[in-house]
Amino acid sequence: MIEFEEVSFRYPGNRDHVLRDITFHVKKGEFLGISGPSGSGKSTLCLMMNGIIPKTIEGELSGEIYIDGENIKEKEVYEVSEKLGLILQNPESQLFSMTVEEELAFGPENLGIKREEIEERISWALELVGMEKFRDAFPHQLSGGEKQKIAIASLLTMKPEILVLDEPTSNLDPKSRIEIFKIVKKLNKKGMTVVVVEHETDFISSADKILILNDGKIVKYGTPREVFREADYLKHVGIRVPEIVEFSNYLLKGGYVDDIFLSVSEALEVLNVKDRESML
């Protein structure tokens, strides 16, 4: 669905590349988590996926990027956005209508979709994000979490196959964060290809694969278990693994477990087994 082949990029007038030799593939229906410290090139990578770089934000791009098999260089941003929806860190930057309904209708209206179909899509999208009651609300009066849900819904009405979220929860309270996680996971379960960029790694610990960027390069790429086993290295480049994973890394080093665990339920399973063994 998303293919990056040896992609490098630098902004005009800059000597250094923001991204260097980036190669990765995301299959249809896969969930990719991307993390890295500030300035590692995460946001630049997102902007490349829908062609804003280099179409709107110019620079020197080498390598090839394919979205659903089509080279992004041959596509306009609006063409890509029918396939791939991009959510930015600050939802306010993408909300502009007087009502939630208008906000959600804007994308499909521009695609020339019939009114009835648009109505259906709006109801469907609002239900998916649990915001049915807010159809007539004024977007700017919503809370941060609600705004982010509307931003997601406004992309869903375009019926994209891929959703890319750039730090979608970094300014939200824990409760709204969890709600956004759940929505994204639900969409992924329904078959949508999902890319989530987060500097906090708890959200992406349930991804199929995790890609770690540092200084514009991919420094780790694998399943969460493979990547999180390197907790010390990640900390060194400035990425915190989820606390529960950090605990399991201590246990692993101390020889109390055979592998790290990623969740409370997994922890209980692993630790109980150990207990039972030691009781025998």
């Binding site: 824990p174 409760k175 969890i178 708890d202 989820p242 606390e243 529960i244 950090e246 605990f247 201590y250 246990l251 101390g254 109390y256 969740s263 409370v264 922890a267 209980l268 630790l271």
Partner: peptide, 29 residues
């Protein structure tokens, strides 16, 4: 208020509320 995962685990393991992975590991050890 949602407890962080680490605190949930430490509570279930009988150590009370602990937020710091290292502290939990020391207790466990």
């Amino acid at each position: 208020i949602e407890l962080p995962e680490i605190a949930k685990l430490s509570k279930i393991l009988g150590f009370g509320i602990i937020f710091d992975p290292k502290e939990l590991y020391e207790k466990w050890r």
